[in-house]
Design a protein around this nucleic acid. Structure first.
Lengths: 116, 116
DNA sequence: CACTTACGTAAGTCTATGCTTACGCTTCGT
DNA sequence: ACGAAGCGTAAGCATAGACTTACGTAAGTG
């Protein structure tokens, strides 16, 4: 039952600041304020980034007193990774196959092809 | 001498349509028109996507007569893949380490921690 | 019960971006 | 030389999105 597709996570990761945030909450569980202090932007901006990451299931949230602690979710990261692995594999495999075919064609008849 | 960072390629890939285009030009060298015909958008829109992909070095362009043929560039795809591999590795490794530390703490003293 | 701390959210702004139509440039066929 | 084919680019538009300030809320503190 996976309603969120890896694609949402990919879009979330495309943002440099969110990538940085995800790195931070991979190293340690952090509060929104702690994260915001390490950036030049205001705290609400970070809250909004955290919401995107949370909606993409890339981070989990836990309340502790007045704070909210965020941490990266390895499962979703692994899913996104797998999704992209398939993407790379499909691309690179077919590219390699195409290059080899071309190489064969080139060597079979000595004249250069595709002059059209 | 790599002026273009993998990050640009990542942003390019974040767009669903561009991911689809990249898949297509991995399977076969295609002209802009051929690509556009497979989408519901106009040809200029595809041209603009192709420009983004080209600037990210994800596709190469070759002129043949009045056409321009596009093809995925395996090198850049591999670079982006490597960049992300590092990202996953760093995230997942530290997450695993943190989880283990926590597990140790939890088992060392029987009571639950972090009540604050 | 105030007051403070630590937040999220709403509203508004500015920029980026994905799209369209209009146009101009090459290259090929005749 | 001329029209058509195949593109890229410019300009304009509408939407998304990354910010800001202002405000509201829940949980500790005195």
């Amino acid at each position: 039952m996976l309603t969120l597709r890896p694609v949402d996570a990919l879009a979330a990761i495309a943002e440099p600041r969110r990538r940085e945030i995800l790195r931070m909450v991979s190293l340690a569980e952090l509060s929104a304020g702690e994260i915001a202090r390490r950036f030049d932007v205001t705290r609400p901006a970070i809250s909004q980034h955290l919401r995107v990451l949370k909606e993409a299931n890339l981070v989990s949230e836990r309340k502790s007193g007045t704070k909210r602690l965020y941490r990266a979710r390895p499962e979703t990261i692994a899913e996104l990774r797998a999704y992209l692995e398939d993407f790379w594999d499909a691309s690179l495999r077919t590219l390699k196959a195409a290059a080899e075919q071309e190489e064969q064609r080139r060597s079979r008849h000595g004249r250069r092809h595709e002059s059209h």
